[in-house]
Simulated assay, not measured.
Amino acid sequence: MAKQYKLTVEKRSETGKLGLKNLRNNKKIPGVYYSYDSTNILFEIDEQEIKNAIQSQANIFTVAVGGKEQNVIFKSVQYHPVTEKIIHIDLYGVDMNKAISIRIPIIFTGNAIGVQTQGGVLNTSLNEIEISCLPSDIPDNIEVDITNLELGGNIQAGEIELGDKFELVTSSDLAVVSVTHAAIEQEPQESDEIEGEEVESEDASGQSSESEAPNEQSESDNKDSD
């Protein structure tokens, strides 16, 4: 059963850069509520309220929007790139009787045999997968047991056991985790380079001695002629 948390929000009229700046200076976070069956609504929420909601680790939130309570999920949360403060939030209204698509974090359990006894390296390709389910069935995470994962093997999204309540949205042939051979660092072959330099030096020396030989022979011929 998905965790639920009640949020207190207020409709807002402030728009534009100056208006949003004033909101944030008063420790308010601007947001947009996207309804699945009616008009979108601009709202504001206390900074501490949204922090508490995130820390609650709830999946479904209840808010009073447009005069009636609605069940919503976080569609997106935007953070300031420097201060990492929350600067905007989008809420998406859900029908508790209709399935929605949502990304769920993956937790890997066990120690892969390919790493423990075969000298491989564990590579994680996906940290979350997208599934479809009823809002009330949204799980906190999905566990993937990697104990029997051998060197050279992988686990694809389609191989994860989800249960009857969930349908996989992520492509089934995407690799989630794998065990590969450890990279082997090749040291530079200094000895070969040195030998090569010596050979080149010897060749140069040989050419030099051969070029001097005719001169010596020429001098000998001159002496004989004298």
Score class of each variant (00 low, 15 high):
Pro105Trp: 05
Lys3Ala: 12
Lys27Asn: 14
Glu161Ala: 13
Lys75Ser: 11
Ile107Leu: 09
Tyr34Phe: 15
Glu143Cys: 01
Ile50Ser: 00
Leu126Tyr: 04
Ile138Asp: 00
Gly119Leu: 10
Tyr5Asp: 08
Leu151His: 02
Glu159His: 06
Lys98Pro: 01
Gln189Pro: 07
Gly158Thr: 04
Gly16Tyr: 10
Val179Lys: 06
Ile73Tyr: 06
Ile155Val: 12
Gln217Arg: 13
Pro30Arg: 06
Ile184Gly: 02
Gln4Val: 12
Lys11Asn: 14
Ser132Val: 08
Pro135Tyr: 07
Asn141Cys: 05
Ser38Trp: 09
Arg24Val: 02
Leu42Met: 13
Lys98Arg: 15
Thr180Tyr: 02
His181Cys: 01
Ile146Gly: 00
Ile113Pro: 02
Ser125Trp: 03
Val115Lys: 08
Asn154Glu: 05
Gly114His: 10
Ser205Gly: 12
Lys11Leu: 10
Leu20Ile: 14
Ala213Met: 14
Gly110Lys: 03
Ala157Tyr: 04
Glu167Pro: 03
Phe43Lys: 03
Ile146Glu: 05
Cys133Met: 11
Ile155Met: 01
Gly114Glu: 06
Ser136Val: 15
Pro135His: 01
Phe108Asp: 08
Val121Ile: 14
Gly31His: 09
Glu128Gln: 15
Glu14Phe: 04
Glu195His: 11
Ile87Arg: 04
Glu10Tyr: 15
Ala64Tyr: 10
Val199Gly: 03
Ala99Leu: 01
Asn97Ile: 00
Thr62Leu: 15
Asp90Gly: 14
Lys3Val: 08
Ile107Gly: 01
Gln78Thr: 09
Thr15Phe: 13
Glu195Gly: 09
Pro105Thr: 13
Phe108Arg: 02
Phe61Met: 08
Asn40His: 13
Ser35Val: 02
Ile50Gln: 05
Leu20Ala: 10
Asp145Cys: 09
Lys17Phe: 08
Ile89Gly: 09
Gln116Thr: 15
Ser101Gln: 13
Ile73Asn: 01
Val72Ser: 09
Gln156Tyr: 03
Lys3Ser: 11
Ile113Trp: 00
Gly31Leu: 10
Thr39Ser: 14
Ala58Asn: 10
Glu47Ala: 02
Pro214Thr: 11
Met1Thr: 02
Phe108Met: 12
Ala58Ile: 03
Gly206Met: 03
Asp46Leu: 13
Ile142Tyr: 04
Phe43Pro: 11
Glu198Asn: 04
Cys133Ile: 07
Asp173Trp: 05
Leu122Gln: 08
Val72Cys: 01
Cys133Phe: 13
Ile138Ser: 05
Ser101Leu: 00
Ser172Arg: 04
Gly206Ser: 11
Asn123Tyr: 10
Val94Gln: 08
Asp37Gln: 11
Ile104Lys: 03
Arg12Gln: 02
Lys28Leu: 15
Gln186Cys: 00
Lys11Tyr: 03
Glu216Leu: 11
Arg24Lys: 11
Ile184Phe: 10
